[in-house]
Design a protein around this nucleic acid. Structure first.
Lengths: 345, 345
DNA sequence: ACATCCCATGTTATCGTTATCACACCGGCA
DNA sequence: TGCCGGTGTGATAACGATAACATGGGATGT
């Protein structure tokens, strides 16, 4: 909206339009439009002729004109925080898979873990009058909510299902993930847990996960020893360093609950380097179910949040909303707790 | 183009348009349009009034109408094969970073490693009359080329720079990557190489990489012993299995050149499991520079193709083309060969 | 044979914005 | 005084497609 100096060459001209086809075939534009959209009520003879002409002329439909004329805009605005790990790429693959077969196209924006940026990006995307919106998480700007209310289109919030959404919600209960892992840990006989967490501001999902974990442990009378956090992006070396610190700080620790699998992998290496038997002396668990962990021995316990399925469900929810289903659908994706080989027993 | 049953609710109505703002301010639509686009030639008084009214009414511009009326479409069509590993997410992050500051927005499509699908997706995206196109690789359908020729907009082909492109090209020489790794291997004293490769049909980039590798070894009088391939997506376990097979098949092997780091990680585990000292007895190398490898010891030799930089350069190339630079720019991104700790010496 | 209905096709208006040209109005200069 | 150039603002016509309605003619029914 604020480009001071736009010195761009004129738009490419001399495009083929439906009227060119109409002229070439000796029919009206309307007939061409009908054929190209696969509407019935056009004689097979003319339809074939129109299709051939369109192909031979290299006609590319102009969605812009179509959309303005009142046709639905086959776009879904998708805002994810970023793509620095495999989480959102997988969600997007699922979304795409779920959209396959419909003519809907995802348009991507990055919210950068910041609700103000998200609002800005949303405004940008809404300018295209998409048919639906997919947002990440349940926390949003007031501006965002207001825009969505005015837009009055299906909205699906993904990833997190702890709380109430604007419209549809597809996600896992992060709180539940923490609770389940705490129970698994206790059942396996571990007692002294330390959390390795990201210092990322406002990572609500991490927060509720750890809250569920801590509450459950406290209720069972085995509160966590403490937690350490790191700044910036996750990486294996960071996990390693963090775990090493944890070991020296709380020698009695016998379980490391890591905020993701990357950190957990590093923690595993640190435990091995420190000569701690895993899981006999010290167990650990991560979060996410990133594929690359498949190859590490022992296999790290984790919670797979089925990101592909989340994306696909979101897509399906959008399709059914557009087909007339009521607002406010919720779908809980049941995370899969994988005990791996880093929990005792 | 062929949705048999479209029963969608009518488009959301009651939107605020420029004419509402015009009416509220007592000026013409044209004046509103000028203000909102930041054109000069409107008195500051009116401009401020218009902007305030727009804000308070919750006006969201309609790019569709604007685009149809002749304004540039601030969209860049981007087609990547998929997102099953971190390669393309990183490219996209770079692209996004490079586009930041301009008003250009990337719209993503998946080509699925198939030129026919690519052509289809391209048609879909061109229907939105984007201002530029980014494609992956240099190999494309005739349909694709024809469409691009007609569209007459900047095109940038990324990743691969072995060959001639349609317009701009940003990438690394895969052939050069193979050559460099072969030289490094020879210099390190390895002699009996085996290739671990994906059976993915038509992966031109892998092919030229390995070709460069093989040619260089042959010229040096130490041809590769052989190669093994796997089907489907890469994973650490597959690398492990493949490497195990290689060890039993060619016991004299002393170097495994893997098509990517995931496979290389698996191969490393296989070597360790077989009791082979790395790199003394057997060295290995991967390809890509995926971040998660940072934590594995020994650090695996690899070639970092600087995917983020590729994306960013592509973005910059597009911006300069749109600003008037001539067609056919080329930018060679120099890959970074990381010897890690799995090459002797 | 005549009214009726349906099917294939055409006509007209419209979507919201921007390009283009036209028009006042103002100050300066000869 | 009259002409000129600039500067704000408005009127009008696209842009390319689709919705909604109109039309003509053949098949159908009685």
């Amino acid at each position: 909206m604020t480009s001071p100096s736009r010195s761009f060459p004129p738009r490419p001209v001399s495009k083929i339009s439906q009227s060119d086809i109409a002229a070439a075939c000796g029919v009206s534009e309307m007939t061409v439009s009908r054929v190209l959209r696969g509407q019935r009520g056009v004689s097979g003879d003319i339809a074939a002729r129109v299709r051939n002409t369109a192909r031979s002329l290299g006609y590319v439909p102009n969605r812009i004109a179509g959309a303005l004329a009142g046709a639905r805009v086959p776009l879904v605005a998708v805002i994810v925080p970023g793509m620095s790990n495999m989480v959102f790429p997988e969600v997007l693959m699922g979304l795409n898979a779920g959209l396959e077969g419909s003519d809907l196209q995802a348009v991507l924006g990055f919210g950068k873990y910041d609700t103000a940026t998200e609002a800005q990006v949303l405004a940008e995307l809404l300018a295209w009058r998409p048919s639906a919106v997919v947002l990440t998480g349940l926390e949003h700007d007031d501006t965002t909510r207001a825009m969505l209310a005015r837009a009055d289109i299906p909205v699906v919030e993904i990833m997190d299902s702890d709380g109430t959404g604007i419209d549809g919600v597809v996600g896992v209960s992060q709180h539940g993930v923490g609770v389940a892992m705490a129970r698994a840990m206790i059942a396996a006989g571990h007692r002294n847990a330390v959390l390795l967490r990201s210092a990322q501001q406002g990572d609500r999902r991490q927060d509720s996960r750890f809250r569920g974990f801590e509450e459950t442990l406290r209720a069972a009378g085995v509160p966590v020893l403490g937690s350490l956090s790191y700044n910036g992006a996750s990486s294996v070396p960071k996990g390693r360093a963090l775990a090493a610190t944890a070991l020296s700080h709380w020698p009695e620790v016998d379980f490391l609950y890591c905020t993701n699998d990357m950190i957990a992998a590093g923690a595993l290496f640190a435990l091995q380097a420190a000569g701690r038997k895993v899981p006999e002396e010290t167990g650990l668990a991560g979060f996410s179910g990133l594929e690359f962990l498949d190859g590490i021995t022992p296999r790290i316990a984790t919670t797979d949040t089925r990101r592909f399925d989340i994306g696909r469900s979101a897509a399906r929810m959008i399709l059914s909303r557009l087909a007339g289903a009521p607002r406010g659908a919720r779908e809980e994706i049941t995370p899969r707790l994988d005990r791996g080989q880093t929990l005792r027993g």
